[in-house]
Computed example of a mutant assay.
Amino acid sequence: MTFANDPAPPTGRLDARAFLRAGIVLILLWFGYMKFLPYEAEGVKGIAETYWLFGWMYPLIGVQGASIVIGVLEITAGLLIALGGRFPFAGLVGALMGVATFVVTLSFFFTAPGIVAEGYAFPALGGTGQFLAKDIGLLAICLYLLFDAQNRLEL
């Protein structure tokens, strides 16, 4: 296993991977921070409280506690992805966490209310569906960074 740095892009070219990494890091850190705020905790509760993966936390640690756990996971993923430019193993773990995060949020498409606009059929998305749809692109970025880290580790 080698811990190579990101290879430099050819002279005069921008490194698209660095932009993808910076973008997903910003999103994960921002979303993670927001989980510490009461209004965001209440918003997350609306779709997470009855979800099998998160529902058990609400009776144990409450609305804010459950939201903080989710926020810590998002912030951790963001920090590890940020380190991934220099340390591929950290990037691999962070990208795996990002993939898991967005697979879980996309699974809400099957359980959350408001996915399809009222009075319409799929693919007419309602507010919740529109909010979750962005995670398709975020998942793709994390998958790209996961495979990139894997290649850099020569796994």
Rank of each mutant, 00 (worst) to 15 (best):
L155T: 10
R152E: 13
R17S: 13
A22C: 04
G78A: 13
F122C: 03
L60T: 08
V116D: 10
E118V: 15
F102A: 00
G98I: 01
A22D: 14
Y39R: 03
T101L: 06
T50C: 07
A121Q: 07
V63R: 04
V104P: 04
P9L: 06
Q130T: 03
D15T: 14
A22Y: 05
L79E: 02
A95H: 01
A90W: 14
P123G: 10
M34T: 06
A4E: 15
A18L: 14
A112Q: 15
A121W: 08
A77K: 00
F87D: 04
V116P: 11
G126D: 03
W56P: 14
F109E: 09
I81W: 02
V44R: 01
S107K: 01
P7M: 11
G78R: 02
F109Q: 09
L138G: 13
G129P: 06
L73E: 07
I115T: 13
F19W: 11
F108M: 13
G62S: 08
T128Y: 02
A4I: 13
W52M: 14
A95M: 10
L83T: 09
A22T: 10
A124F: 08
A124Y: 01
A48P: 01
D6Y: 06
I47F: 15
F109R: 09
V63A: 04
N151S: 12
R152I: 06
F89I: 13
S107V: 15
F108R: 05
I70D: 04
A16W: 13
W30E: 06
L28I: 07
V25G: 02
G46D: 12
L20F: 11
R21E: 01
A18Q: 12
L29T: 11
I61Y: 00
A100Q: 10
I136A: 09
Y33A: 01
G32H: 01
T2Y: 07
L29N: 12
I47K: 11
F31P: 09
Y120S: 08
G55R: 06
A8T: 14
A121S: 11
A16R: 14
P88S: 00
G91D: 07
A48Q: 15
P88R: 07
K134I: 12
A90E: 03
I136C: 03
G127S: 10
K134C: 05
G12T: 02
A18W: 03
E49K: 09
D6N: 03
V25Y: 04
F102E: 02
F87V: 08
L139K: 03
G55P: 07
V103Y: 06
F31H: 14
L29Q: 05
F54Y: 15
R21N: 13
F19I: 02
Y58W: 10
T11A: 15
P123I: 13
L79C: 06
A8H: 08
L29K: 03
L80W: 08
P7V: 13
R21W: 04
G12V: 01
E154D: 07
F108I: 09
I136N: 06
L14D: 01
T11E: 12
P113N: 10
V63H: 03
I47L: 05
V93Q: 00
T111I: 11
I47M: 06
